[in-house]
Simulated scan of single mutants.
Amino acid sequence: MSDLLRAPAEIKYAEELDWLESVDDGHKPFSWRLSPKMVRLFVLGSERADGLDREISQKWFGERSIVERAIVTLASDRGLLLIGDPGTGKSWLAELLAAAISRNSTLVVQGTAGTTEDHIKYAWNVSMVIAKGQSRESMIPSPIMTAMESGRIGRFEELTRSTSDVQDALISILSEKYISVPELDSDSDDSIVFAKPGFSVIATANSRDRGVNDLSSALKRRFNFVRIPVVTNKKSEADIVRFRTEELLRRHRIELDVPPTLLDVLLQSFADLRASAAAAGSDDEKLESALSTAEQIGVLEDSILHGNFFGERTLTARTLASSLVGSLARRDPEDLAILNKYLHGVVEPRSKDEGGEWPEFLEGGRDAIATLS
Rank of each mutant, 00 (worst) to 15 (best):
D3M: 06
A195C: 05
Q167M: 06
L328F: 03
E312C: 13
V230F: 15
A147F: 00
V108M: 09
L74M: 00
L336V: 08
L20F: 07
L34V: 08
Q58G: 13
T293P: 08
G298K: 09
D168M: 02
F194E: 14
R250A: 09
G62C: 10
L305C: 02
S76E: 13
A203P: 02
P229I: 01
I202W: 06
A290E: 03
S127C: 10
F61N: 07
R250T: 08
K234Y: 10
T73W: 05
A49F: 06
R161V: 06
D25V: 03
A49I: 07
I304E: 11
I192W: 07
R244E: 10
S236D: 14
D239T: 01
A294L: 07
V166G: 05
T232K: 12
F30S: 11
G365Y: 03
P86K: 09
V67T: 00
G211D: 01
V201H: 00
Y122R: 06
D283P: 13
A113E: 08
V230W: 15
S150Y: 12
W19K: 13
D302K: 13
S35E: 11
S276A: 13
F199M: 03
V108W: 06
V265P: 00
H119I: 03
G365L: 01
H27D: 15
A238R: 02
D335G: 06
F270E: 03
A368Q: 03
G356I: 04
V230D: 14
V212F: 08
M148A: 10
K12N: 15
A113F: 09
F270L: 05
I66H: 11
K341F: 00
R222H: 03
E183Q: 05
A279D: 01
L219G: 04
I171S: 00
K37M: 02
G51K: 02
E55I: 13
V126D: 15
I130S: 15
R161N: 11
G356Y: 00
E288L: 15
R366F: 07
L74S: 00
A205H: 04
D367W: 10
V230K: 14
A75T: 05
L248I: 11
I192T: 11
A238V: 01
V109L: 12
P359Q: 02
A94T: 06
A75L: 04
I297A: 10
L305E: 03
I228L: 09
S269N: 10
K220I: 10
P8T: 07
L248Q: 10
V265G: 05
P359T: 01
P8V: 05
D214F: 12
L256G: 09
R33A: 14
A98M: 06
D214H: 12
T232R: 11
D85V: 08
R48A: 15
L263H: 09
V265M: 02
F243Q: 05
P260F: 04
K234A: 12
N308K: 12
D257Y: 13
L267W: 07
F310Y: 14
I171G: 02
A290Y: 08
E295N: 04
Y13I: 04
S2R: 15
G45A: 03
T115I: 00
K37I: 01
L305D: 00
